[in-house]
C-alpha cells in the first residue's frame, strides 16, 4: 500500500485525468504491468485473452473515470476490480463454450518444462495448483490478491466488495483450509517410495 504522499499525488493525477483524458495515459503506464500479470495468472497464461482483457479493463476505466470517487485507496484497486469483473465475465463465456483455461494452462506449462526444470519451485507450483483447485473461487481470489498481487486487506476488501474485517477472517480461514490440503511428510515419503 503506497504512503500518503504517493496517494495524494495519485489523487491529483486522477482529478486531472477526469478533466483532461490525455492524463489517463499516465495512469495506464503506471498500472499496466500489475494488471497484465494479474489477468495473465487468472487466464492461466493465455496471452491473447490477457491482451483482450487488459485492454478492455483500461477502456472501461477510461470511460467511467468520471464516476470514480476517491476513497483513499490506490487507483490500482479500482483497476483490479474492473479486471476481476472482466475475468469473471470471460470465465462465464468460456464455460458456455466448453473452454477450460486452467487445464490448458497446465498443459502449456507442462509442455514448456523439461525434466531438469522440475525443481522445488515447480513442485511448489503443482502443490499450489492442487490446493487452489480444492478451494472455492472467492477463496482462490483472496489468496491470489493477497500473495501474488501483494495487496493489503483494505485493497482486497475494495476489490471484492467486502468489509475489511470480513476479508481478514476470510484470509485466515482460507489459509487454514489450504494448510489442511498440504501433503504431510508421511504422504511425501509414501509418494517417493
Amino acid at each position: 500500500m503506497p504512503n500518503n504522499t504517493e496517494l495524494e499525488s495519485e489523487r491529483r493525477l486522477i482529478e486531472t485525468a477526469k478533466v483532461d483524458p490525455e492524463k489517463f495515459m499516465d495512469l495506464y503506464t503506471k498500472y499496466y504491468d500489475q494488471i497484465y500479470r494479474y489477468v495473465y495468472r487468472r487466464t492461466g497464461g493465455n496471452k491473447d485473452e490477457t491482451h483482450d482483457l487488459v485492454s478492455q479493463t483500461f477502456i472501461d476505466a477510461l470511460s467511467h473515470i468520471q464516476s470514480f470517487k476517491w476513497q483513499g485507496y490506490p487507483f490500482s484497486s479500482w483497476l483490479y476490480k474492473i479486471a476481476h469483473n472482466n475475468v469473471i465475465k470471460w470465465y462465464r463465456k468460456a464455460e458456455k463454450s466448453n473452454y477450460v483455461p486452467i487445464e490448458e494452462a497446465k498443459n502449456v506449462s507442462d509442455k514448456n518444462r523439461d525434466q531438469q526444470e522440475l525443481t522445488d519451485a515447480s513442485l511448489a507450483k503443482d502443490q499450489i495448483n492442487a490446493i487452489m483447485e480444492k478451494l472455492e473461487e472467492d477463496e482462490r481470489e483472496i489468496l491470489r490478491l493477497k500473495f501474488f498481487e501483494g495487496l493489503s486487506n483494505i485493497e482486497i476488501a475494495e476489490i471484492m466488495g467486502l468489509s475489511i474485517s470480513n476479508i481478514g477472517v476470510k484470509v485466515f480461514r482460507t489459509l487454514k483450509k489450504a494448510k489442511g490440503f498440504l501433503p504431510t511428510k508421511h504422504d511425501l515419503k509414501q509418494s517417493n517410495e
Binding site: Y32, H51, A121, S122, A124, I128, L182
Partner: peptide
C-alpha cells in the same frame, strides 16, 4: 503455505510484451 505462495510468485517470470502494451496504448 505462505512460503509456497511466495516461492511460486518469485519463480514466476511473466514477460510483458511491449508491443501489446503499445497496441493497447493506441487503442486508448
Amino acid at each position: 503455505i505462505t512460503d509456497l505462495f511466495f516461492k511460486v510468485k518469485n519463480e514466476e517470470n511473466i514477460q510483458i510484451d511491449e508491443s501489446e502494451k503499445a497496441k493497447i496504448k493506441n487503442i486508448l
